[in-house]
Amino acid sequence: MHDLTMARSIVDTVLEAAKERGAEEVLEIDLVIGALTLLSREQMDFWVRELLRGTIGEGAEVNIEQQGPEVRCKQCGYRGPVEVSDDPIYHLMAFTPTCPECGSTELEIVAGDECTIRNIRARR
């Protein structure tokens, strides 16, 4: 839904960081998008490329890594991936995670809810 908005912040942030460091061209952008976000990888890829047109980032390679959900259990201390039920009745993924070790629902999300600009490769 808000893929365009997020793509715009990504592109703004990338271009600002690149220009600050004297880049003349952005060659590659590595992004991480969490599976728990409402962002679609295809749409993000499309919009980022589209918004880079006419900038020093036009034509840059855009790599998007999908990050699965990882949690820390507040009950037993388990730290690692969790299964997320993706019931087809839901248009969107309903995140109802339980700890695979102890079944607790008191979990802290440590990964999977991000939209991160990991790395920018540039040329100066």
Binding site: A18, R118, N119
Partner: peptide
């Protein structure tokens, strides 16, 4: 000299 360099940003926009 032409120089290719990496900017390791690690910036999470949703976390912002």
């Amino acid at each position: 000299t032409e120089e290719i360099f990496d900017i390791e940003l690690e910036e999470d926009l949703l976390n912002r």
